[in-house]
Design a protein around this nucleic acid. Structure first.
Lengths: 350, 350
DNA sequence: CTGTTAGCGCCTTCAG
DNA sequence: CTGAAGGCGCTAACAG
């Protein structure tokens, strides 16, 4: 393999100058025969323009980035699809980065991404550290945050009221006749974990639910099915008496993955869902619709949030001076079989 | 906002030369006081080095790319995690691109990605067109393909024998006493679709299964749950007589997503899984383990394939001249509740 | 240890 | 319509 051909080689082979070659390939003014010669030369050499050099010269890369903690979570996949739908056609390409749970990694990623590799960034961080905020603000390219930030931070933001979402879940369970409601949360050092906990505590008080013996709250190690199963196993065994009777009749999980883990745990313990234990998830991901039993879930409008985020980013890209916006998407409840004991489960598959 | 500070501004403010500023920031030889001055200047200006310029000069970006048709498919998530595990620590960062089903998009992506934005690429394409192969071969950076390529193509490759995988599934069902086995495939213009079909036809012949009335094969529109449900609905209704009796007692699905869709369809029709219909998936994704009922699935070693792909890529990066390798990962069967009528379903959650 | 200089590959005025 | 020349921001020789 010889070295990659550059525009110089193409120009030489075509017998024209570098400038003419560039113009010919980019559709600028050039005589038809020059275009033909240059095209032929480029083809025979297998010439591909260097994106890096192009970006440096042009000042943009036509790439946008979407950064999340865990692409394995379907909620981010839905967001990504929505973002991509908006972005496509505007000439940008989207690339996804999975940052992992380490906040330092996220900061690191933002730093490098936001300086050259992408023209804009949508980020949905689980853990918002001060350092991350600093980095987000000084990023060289526009950043849109999907999630909650301190009010003082001036950044385009799309958020949801997940505390209210938990409230919807609890209210639905209370209406369905459940009173001994447990809460399966994710890590408390995350923004979603914090706000969901607040939502649960408030709802618990509002409905005057009596605290059971032992805490009805359990914190999973992360927002995954495996962690949800383990935490649910702990929570459920803690609330079982010697005869195996369960002191809990419902569970609100902080997201669908945890909810699925919880259902799995319940089934392992020989419990029936929803008869013995009703389960509500959050995010209303595709998973909720096709799981068995169908999972009642609080939609946090992930697709809508993604769409808004992409639109905000595009808008800022075309007008860097526009005032920052903060969009709030309201949660809605989607009822399925996991909380319905009557015989008509809503076999919806979307 | 003023223009972004460059290294020149830092150097000026620190009262040193451009070169010294560069050296000071990159930890090259420099006097302690120079380092201090430059650091201070950089900090006060909020200087961030331009990644594009750096890449152009250095000739590499320290970024690797993983391109798949649909990041929504958990099999790719597992591959990605494995790749990331290998790549991390070698100094590269991984970015993911979801190309969508359009082969032209994929070609386009390879073209741009493989010229500047990344130093290497792992790609797992569903549809391998001649044009894609051409593009893969002429890519300016090393490419590793996860999937099957024509034998003549000289590229590092990691593949699996999915035809044999289908064979394992059919054999298991036959051993479990099933004889009227249907096949739920993905699109036939995809590499996996083609090879799985071959596997099914061969297995069908090998076990001397009698063809039922009407085709026992059905092709879903794509490899998703929704498409699987729809196709399964078609297939199952076609094999039901007027009294509702099912002429099929088992289904092999081309991946876990289709299998889940099929189970959903079966339940909608009032069938019991596995009593009325046993279902086998492929890929043995996390989904298979926590679905209800647990999904028997043929593992195609997605994590292992990802690991191999990453290692091949790293190896080629450090030695571009090494001979190309072709690694084959063998499928294995993982039995769970969806094919077991006896009362001990293997509630495994991994 | 430091400053000067020459590019990385490309696009784009500016003259011709 | 074409060619020559000047950078985009950075790093790596090369002298001093």
């Amino acid at each position: 393999m010889s070295a990659r051909p550059t525009l110089i080689h193409v120009a030489e082979l075509a017998g024209v100058s570098l400038a003419s070659a560039s113009r010919a390939l980019n559709g600028m003014v050039a005589s038809p025969e020059t275009v033909a010669k240059v095209r032929a030369a480029a083809l025979s050499l297998g010439y591909i323009p260097d994106a890096t050099a192009r970006s440096l010269k042009l000042g943009h890369s036509l790439q946008l980035a979407f950064a999340v903690d865990d692409v394995g979570n379907p909620v981010y996949v839905e967001m990504m699809r929505a973002i991509e739908t908006v972005v496509r056609g505007s000439g940008y390409r989207l690339q996804v980065s999975s940052t992992g749970t380490d906040p330092a990694e996220t900061v690191d990623l933002v730093r490098s991404l936001a300086r050259g590799y992408a023209d804009g960034l949508v980020i949905s961080p689980l853990r918002v550290t001060d350092e991350l905020i600093v980095e987000l603000k000084r990023a060289a390219v526009p950043v849109v945050v999907v999630g909650t930030l301190p009010d003082t931070v001036q950044l385009d933001t799309v958020q949801t009221d997940s505390a209210r979402g938990v409230g919807l879940a609890v209210a639905h369970l209370v209406e369905s006749g459940r009173r001994r409601i447990g809460f399966l949360n994710g890590p408390l050092d995350t923004t979603p974990g914090m706000s969901r906990r607040r939502g649960f505590v408030e709802a618990y008080a509002a409905h005057q639910l009596a605290p059971a013996a032992g805490s009805v709250q359990e914190v999973a190690a992360d927002f995954t099915v495996a962690a949800g199963r383990r935490a649910a196993l702990d929570l459920l065994s803690r609330h079982r008496d010697a005869r195996g009777a369960l002191a809990l009749d419902a569970l609100v999980a902080a997201n669908d993955l945890l909810a699925v883990g919880a259902i799995h745990a319940a089934l392992e313990l020989g419990l029936q869902v929803p008869e013995d234990l009703a389960v509500v998830g959050m995010d209303d991901t595709e998973l909720a619709g096709f799981f068995n039993p169908g999972l009642t879930s609080v939609s946090l409008g992930s697709a809508e949030r993604g769409r808004h985020a992409a639109e905000l980013l595009l808008a800022r890209l075309s007008d860097p001076a526009r005032p920052t916006r903060r969009i709030v998407v309201q949660p809605t409840l989607v009822v399925r079989a996991s909380t319905q004991t009557d015989p008509t489960p809503e076999g919806t598959v979307r």
